[in-house]
Write a protein that binds this DNA or RNA. Structure first.
Lengths: 132, 132
DNA sequence: CACTTTTTTAGAATCATTATAAACTACAAA
DNA sequence: TTTGTAGTTTATAATGATTCTAAAAAAGTG
């Protein structure tokens, strides 16, 4: 299994559940956005195997901490995650309540002129809201 | 009262509660960020008068719909609102969990090159996460 | 195998937010 | 003014995402 090493190297034991979640999240060329509940459904469908909701939460948070997933900053009742962890941005279609990737190359360079004393910039994320 | 007209013009009846909330939100030169619970505290302190939590929620949502308040897109357990409704952006200090305004003029012009069929851009919001 | 540590799990607890439905209020028309 | 009604406020209940708990299971180590 190709994810065993990845997990071990992060100090996470390669359990059956984590490996299955890795398959669902990372064994695809396309990256995608998801909520915890969408992920749970996807796991059920793809693996014919129910993983406890608490484990899905635990695993997603563990993966986020290790940098394998990112939270998308957006106001929604559920938290959205992204398997695309490269620097990039998002459109949010307000009507469809859907996220669309917006590559860095599709946004002109962003230059933050203001500096905050003693703080470093960790990330710059752009959210473009869309209406009809 | 200076807020009576403002409310009437928006089709909102100028009730005692709404006028008091207007005072707390808008009767100051400085704009600010708040959560519903912070606002409830502020109301209690400034007016010696308890307004029902449900009313605070209702009013904030009504004001947001009318464009007098904006939600700040950020992942947090509570929703943050902003009395600054001009186009601008935010720093988010991850350690202090604090928002700082970032004026449009402190960010170079942002040019969104990708277009989405049949959709218009409603807003472009930048969130700059800060670490030590 | 024996032992320790980590992980999983179902279910309970928490907490922000929304819904409910009864009492109240603004406002306009008579 | 009085009356009618649509809009508001309120306490409280309901909802729903997320986190906590503590016991059982699995992984890693010697």
């Amino acid at each position: 299994m190709k994810y065993i090493e990845k997990l071990r190297n992060s100090g996470l034991r390669p359990t059956k559940q984590r490996l299955q979640i890795c398959e669902v999240l990372f064994n695809t060329d396309k990256t995608f956005h998801f909520t915890i509940n969408e992920l749970e459904q996807k796991i059920k469908k793809q693996t014919n195997n129910k993983i406890s909701l608490a484990t899905v939460y635990n695993t997603v948070h563990a993966f986020e901490k290790k940098g394998y997933l990112k939270q998308i900053p957006i106001n929604s009742s559920e938290t959205y995650f992204d398997t695309n962890v490269t620097d990039h941005h998002h459109f949010y279609d307000l009507k469809e309540e859907k996220l669309i990737d917006l590559e860095n190359s599709d946004v002109g360079p962003i230059n933050i002129l203001k500096k905050i004393n003693g703080k470093k910039i960790k990330s710059v994320e752009v959210l473009v809201k869309l209406e009809d």
